[in-house]
């Protein structure tokens, strides 16, 4: 029995959960633990991707839900003893998995890119050192194994499953630990294609020189109907919002084409984009590590190459 934690994102299941369900249904019978607002079409989608059962966790309201959610899942896991509980590497996924590991006194393996069950015990694959080494970790503690998987580790595909059996579980009161509240929500409006879903991504780094020059990335992206991305260096510098960050602590993208403008290619950036089909890089330093993964590398100044490229398109 495999459980998958699913969080609501804008009224539906978070996309990473659909990836996890696709994987989970190859490992055994799947129960989705769904946190958030839902309706029959949401449940039908979970069924389509492989969930035979859904446990709908309700009553989070405006509280930060992780502590109560971990408590609820711990109680359910003690009762049903699943072999594996899978989480996506999202904010709430990490918050719940961390707290749950304490509740159950079980280890949690993070940043997984694959998971298997062999004789009921979990075997987890990780890519470390910027994806240059592949390690396999066996869980020696008793079940359930707690695993946090990277987004895009598995391709989401509907499996044609029917409507799942849905039960409801209210979140318990966990006292002070569950008392933090969300008092306000701010959504940054993004335009253009979504970074995680776009076929082409154009990203910029510190080599652009200034916040104003990110416009080069935006114009090029507009011509190619691409999404725009960024390195953490320019997110931290406040040039662009965090939602655009690609890499270990940002989004994982796997587009057909990734165009890196003025990006050095740090390990933490590469893990978020190195599985793109084709990588094109423009950097003035011929030794920049981004060239080690680029199918086409242009040693040149972004301020010369990119405007000409936009002009020619």
């Amino acid at each position: 029995m495999v459980w998958v934690f699913v969080q609501e994102a804008n009224g539906a299941a978070d996309p990473v959960a659909l990836e996890l369900l696709t994987k989970a249904r190859t490992l055994g019978s799947v129960t989705a633990l769904y946190l958030g607002e839902a309706n029959d079409s949401v449940f039908a989608q979970l069924g389509d991707y492989g969930a035979a059962n859904v446990i709908h966790l309700t009553g989070a309201g405006n509280s930060l839900p992780a502590a109560a959610t971990a408590s609820a899942i711990a109680a359910l896991a003690t009762e049903h003893n699943p072999a594996l509980i899978l989480f996506g590497s999202t904010y709430i996924g990490r918050d719940v998995a961390g707290r749950l590991s304490v509740r159950l006194d079980r280890p949690v393996v993070s940043n997984a890119v694959d998971v298997a069950l062999e004789d009921g015990s979990a075997l987890i694959t990780n890519e470390i050192f910027g994806g240059t080494k592949i390690i396999k970790t066996a869980i020696t503690a008793s079940s359930p194994a707690l695993v946090i998987a990277r987004p895009k580790a598995f391709a989401a595909e509907p499996g044609g499953g029917g409507a799942p059996h849905v039960t409801e579980a209210g979140l318990p009161d966990v006292g002070h630990a569950g008392s933090a509240t969300i008092t306000d929500r701010h959504t940054e409006t993004a335009s253009g294609p979504k970074l995680e879903e776009a076929e082409i991504v154009v990203s910029g780094g510190r080599g652009l020189g200034s916040a104003e020059k990110y416009e080069l990335v935006e114009s090029l992206a507009a011509k190619l109907r691409a999404a725009t991305g960024a390195t953490r260096a320019i997110v931290d510098a406040g040039w662009v919002p965090y939602a655009k960050q690609v890499g270990q602590t940002g989004k994982t993208v796997k587009p057909k084409i990734y165009i890196a403008c003025g990006i050095s290619g740090a390990m933490q950036h590469l893990v978020g984009m190195k599985d793109s089909d084709t990588i094109i890089a423009i950097n003035k330093d011929p030794e920049a590590p981004i060239f080690d993964v680029a199918d086409l590398g242009i040693v040149g100044d972004v301020h010369n190459v990119v405007p000409k490229l936009i002009e020619a398109l």
């Binding site: 930060l64 992780a66 961390g98 304490v102 002070h176 933090a180």
Partner: peptide, 13 residues
């Protein structure tokens, strides 16, 4: 998050 659970306090992450 694990530290917060062990200390039984909220984690504002």
């Amino acid at each position: 998050q694990q530290i917060a659970e062990l200390l039984d306090v909220p984690a504002l992450t």
